[in-house]
């Protein structure tokens, strides 16, 4: 982009959510917050309600993971499906959980559609905790999948 990455800083962060801050500084989510705390698009280029149970998410064009894999609608679905299997996917609180019967369908390379069994006006806030990892992450590390068969509790 317009600037190069230079220099190194050393950080001491004793916050109990340090692990989560590292995650947020390492992975992207469909949305993030601006400095004032308001939600803005990140990995998602747009998120549009088709009706009160159907949310269309367009993935940002040209998004790539750190390992150079492209990030597509399939990546969103893969991460959604993996984490939906967990009973308690978010240690900070159940407010980040999607409805257990929610599903994600891929319509094209950059479009996925979330279908909820009931309206969920809080879903954009939940996207804040919806970390999207490269396929190789799930094939190798996957928050402990390889070791324990589940990533539950290994954020």
């Amino acid at each position: 982009m317009a600037h190069t990455s230079v220099g190194e800083v050393h950080v001491f962060d004793p916050h109990p959510l340090n692990w989560l801050f590292i995650t947020w500084n390492t992975m992207e989510e469909p949305v993030r917050t601006d400095p004032e705390g308001f939600i803005v698009m990140a990995l998602a280029e747009s998120a549009t309600w088709r009706d009160d149970r159907t949310l269309e998410v367009r993935v940002r064009e040209g998004a790539r993971f750190q390992d150079d894999e492209p990030c597509t609608a399939d990546s969103i679905k893969q991460n959604f499906d993996e984490v939906q299997r967990w009973a308690v996917p978010h240690p900070p609180g159940t407010y980040l959980n999607f409805h257990p019967d929610a599903r994600c369908d891929v319509e094209d390379e950059r479009t996925c559609v979330f279908r909820f069994p009931e309206p969920d006006g809080l879903v954009l806030g939940k996207f804040r905790g919806f970390h999207i990892a490269s396929p190789s992450f799930w094939h190798t590390h996957g928050f402990g999948y390889k070791r324990t068969g589940s990533g539950e509790g290994h954020w």
Partner: peptide, 17 residues
């Protein structure tokens, strides 16, 4: 370095101590 928004990291490295 392949991140394609204005949010590409300004820093090359961050070390959490």
């Amino acid at each position: 370095h392949d991140h394609n928004t204005e949010r590409q990291a300004r820093l090359a490295r961050v070390v959490f101590r």
